[in-house]
Amino acid sequence: MTPRILIAASLFGLALPALALAATTGEVPPVEGMPQLAFGHPEQGRFLVANVVWLFILFGLLYVLMSTYALPRVASVLEERRARIEADLEQAQAAKQRADAALAEHQAATAKARADAQAAIATATQQAQAETTAREEALNARLAAQIDAAEQRIAASRDAAMGALKTVAADAAEALVARLTGGADRAAVERAVGAELAARGQA
């Protein structure tokens, strides 16, 4: 039905009461009591019965119109809207899930990068420490070697000096003895000097 037909029909329906006023007849006797119960009245009684018959016909028409035509359309529109809303909600949920997944991925990547960086730093630190330690050890070893060599040289020099001191002391002692006594036994002097040096702890 187009809207124009519906409007025309409504206007027609609105005009009906006016028609009713025009069609009222005056020959029948007046209605006693409630017109709704005047089943015995020649005119009213007829219309009351017809009213019910028309009620059944018209209500049946309304029921058929509603059940076969009008209500299924409303139901389909409501169903369409429900489906649309549900689909939108689902879409939103899916989008949220994607966003959550992306966020989780991003967080995982960040965490991994941080861990990698920390590991690299740790490795570098360790390497640096190991190198430092090795270099220190090498330096220590070289220094120790140099100290050893120096000590050996010192010892050698001292021994040499001690040896020279013994000879000089023996020479001096021999010269003293020779001046005092006129003659000196070189071997005896050397023994005496050696004993004296040993006694002083300088041999």
């Binding site: 009906l16 028609l19 007829r46 017809a50 009213n51 209500f59």
Partner: peptide
């Protein structure tokens, strides 16, 4: 027997 009642229906 179509009355104004039925017209309003």
């Amino acid at each position: 027997g179509f009355s104004q009642s039925n017209a309003h229906m």
